[in-house]
Design a protein around this nucleic acid. Structure first.
Lengths: 207, 207
DNA sequence: GCTCGACAAGACGACGCGTCTCGCCAAGAA
DNA sequence: TTCTTGGCGAGACGCGTCGTCTTGTCGAGC
């Protein structure tokens, strides 16, 4: 039978999240062990096995929690443009808006606190379809839907062709950045993401 | 001191490649162990540790070998269009050529014999920069350079703007497919890759 | 005050790690 | 031919982590 969640220790849960994120950052995902997380968190191993099914599962929840905290903090501070986790700006200039957001994404991808855990989860997701789909569903796809929304607005404004599928269109500038980050296929710079936006909007063929 | 490669057993090398590829396909990368590869190949563990530094290293060489064999076979058969590992066709119609090659790539990505090992290596590469760079340098980048060559030809033909960087341009249609495959962010179909080519060539903005 | 179940701690057998020590055997030297 | 060399298959070894199980503690609700 499942454990009684009303008696669950919030203190342990938080300690486990913190320990998991710290260990992944410090020693890397492969050397992060359940035993290590338990020891660091001052927690019995059984407490981890009681609530999570695997190392990846722990890290996924820890990272979701971290993202939620970060989004909340950004929301409170009402900082626009630095890392708009909740919405993509709409100034009426699609090209400028996309360039701005992609530059912010570049900053986030290179932020060590986010890089280690998200790399670990992405890697696990490549080889473990269940983890992959959960990672995408809970973290990646919601971000991508922000682009869908912005592109739909652009279609109404006439800045993007009305017959295009926004969910595919966004991949033209998001996926190249993602691939460079995931697979080290090239450098990640503002100049690069700016070009991606330009190439995607105006096409490779001459006008 | 390094071992004497002139006395190396070719028989063992091949058996190790075969065992590694088979195990990754059958039980998955995480459950593939050096001990398991050795046992399956009928080989002492030390023989593996003598010539390779890690599980990823073994698999990388095994997969490179597999790819080389496949390319050689395709070359011999002179099959054009099904899986052109050596060159991208140039019929003068860039859109058609790219659609054809991307459709072939879709087939390859869904081929079980290639999928398991290449997923495993990609995953390892995400979290292990050294493996990642080797994977890219030896396997991925050579493939991408075929697109660079084809796009350069298209630029000379006037089918692609002369001021674009072909190495970035190719990412508009290759990376989205790669991301969907790696991260399960969406279905992979011919219709999808066809659209990628169209969107990339003619742009998102109205003409 | 009593019960119940999560908790920290850690013992347990299983297993893969990477290193090592054995004979065995084939190729080149004497 | 005989001798030497070094990779070879096999597997023992100590170590660390796995996931499970046991023990005693503690706090919340009846």
């Amino acid at each position: 039978m499942p454990p009684d969640s009303t008696r669950r220790s919030e203190r342990s849960r938080r300690a486990i999240y913190d320990a998991a994120l710290a260990l992944v950052t410090e020693v890397g995902y492969p050397k992060t062990t359940i035993e290590g997380i338990a020891a660091r968190a001052g927690v019995g191993k059984q407490t981890i096995y009681r609530w999570w099914s695997s190392k990846a599962d722990v890290l996924l929840e820890a990272f979701i929690d971290l993202s939620a905290q970060a989004a909340e903090a950004a929301d409170r501070a009402e900082v626009i443009g630095e890392q708009a986790a909740y919405e993509i700006p709409d100034t009426g200039d699609l090209e400028a808006d996309l360039k701005l957001v992609l530059r912010a994404t570049v900053d986030e991808l290179l932020d060590p606190a986010f890089e280690a855990p998200s790399r670990a989860l992405a890697a696990e997701g490549v080889v473990n379809e269940e983890v992959g789909r959960e990672f995408v569903g809970k973290l990646l796809e919601p971000q991508l839907q922000l682009y869908v929304k912005r592109l739909r607005a652009a279609q109404e404004q006439g800045a993007v062709r009305a017959d295009l599928d926004p969910r595919i269109a966004l991949e033209l500038f998001v996926s190249p950045l993602a691939q460079r980050w995931l697979q080290y296929t090239g450098p990640i710079t503002y100049e690069y993401t700016d070009k991606l936006v330009e190439y995607a909007l105006y096409g490779l063929a001459p006008r």
